[in-house]
Write a protein that binds this DNA or RNA. Structure first.
Lengths: 196, 196
DNA sequence: CACAATTTCAATAATGTTATTGATAATCGT
DNA sequence: ACGATTATCAATAACATTATTGAAATTGTG
């Protein structure tokens, strides 16, 4: 009989959290399975009850990381609000994922390259689609005259995503800089720029 | 007698290039000294004629990477041109370093965290100063009324640097996207935004 | 409680990696 | 061409890491 009691799921979750934390802190290759085990208070070999291989663990962590991004973006495109509001929501969702699941997001951003090609498929597809959706949002904004006609939607989308991703490099250093504050700042800069 | 013939320097340079390329491609821990040796066409043990340890190699690569950034930024602050021009030059210098020394820059950006604390000192100091100089440029621009008074120079500096750094993630994928084009795009977006 | 399922352990095989060393080959200046 | 300097090699010690296995402990259930 399959158990799948809430307890088992909780433990599985703890395991993924530990893997994400260790991968984020040390990088995939810099992290050892022993590090993950130590964080869970179990022995290195015991981990293999939860995964088949270290690679599989990385894949799972990356998937959680990227899904945090993609989750809400669909609804945002569909919603009937101004372009500014769409961008504000996109940024908020992006930064929100960073705040609530920093380890997963950081691992997705920085460690997915270490997955062998045959494990990269879905992760790559999801992240490509994410940028594509943002590009589409910008394109529609250009059509509706809400953004400059000279704006290249592709480049602008890459810039917006890069801008949000870069927050991961320093978020948390200064407690004054809340997600809300940073989000407003990025949204404003993206739409109006810093020029007087 | 110390030789220091041009040849020796050239070889030293080749060695650093190889280390940078391998670290950039596989990450510090994912890269083996054997990988670096293979790229140079020599045996793994022979590398230790050029460095004392893998860590030292990483430190040297990171230093070259960060110096590419800091090099020109000083002159830009001093120069007597408009804020827009200062920012345009800053972005151009940043992206230029990315284009001409991508491997070194990528290693500095993504791998410096794997240096032990006692090797991080100078690298950290240089990169802090880099952001500080940009912050100062923006502050002076705020004082001169060239940028919005509501702009937070610190956040804006972090954003500008993050934006430029994020180009490393995709630069080179599309040959149509030249450094000049990307630079103009970023400068425009940073100052005027994409809004109509 | 007793039984079955779940979770962890101890021990270890197989492999890979860094760094050292003394010998050897290649190169340079005279 | 010769001796000295520079560069590379072969071999290996020491160590770390992943993954496997069968046993043991723990937990949940009737």
């Amino acid at each position: 009989m399959k158990r799948e009691s809430g307890k088992a799921k909780r433990r599985q979750h703890e395991f993924l959290d530990a893997a994400a934390a260790v991968f984020a802190a040390k990088g995939y290759h810099g992290a050892t399975t022993g590090d993950i085990a130590a964080r869970l208070g179990i022995k290195q070999g015991s981990l293999y009850y939860y995964f088949r291989s270290k690679e599989e663990a990385l894949e799972q962590v990356c998937l959680v990381g990227v899904k945090g991004f993609v989750q809400t973006i669909e609804d945002i495109t569909a919603s009937d609000v101004s372009l500014r509001e769409k961008i504000a929501r996109t940024v908020a969702a992006h930064l929100g994922a960073l705040a609530t699941r920093k380890d997963y997001v950081v691992v997705f951003l920085d460690q997915r390259q270490h997955l062998p090609p045959d494990r990269r498929g879905e992760i790559l597809a999801q992240s490509r689609r994410y940028v594509q959706v943002i590009e589409d949002i910008l394109k529609s904004g250009r059509d509706s005259g809400e953004i400059k006609s000279s704006t290249d939607p592709r480049l602008a989308a890459l810039n917006l995503v890069g801008l949000c991703n870069s927050v991961a490099d320093w978020y948390g250093h200064d407690p004054k800089l809340t997600i809300e504050l940073i989000g407003k700042n990025i949204t404003n800069m993206f739409i109006e720029g810093v020029g007087a």
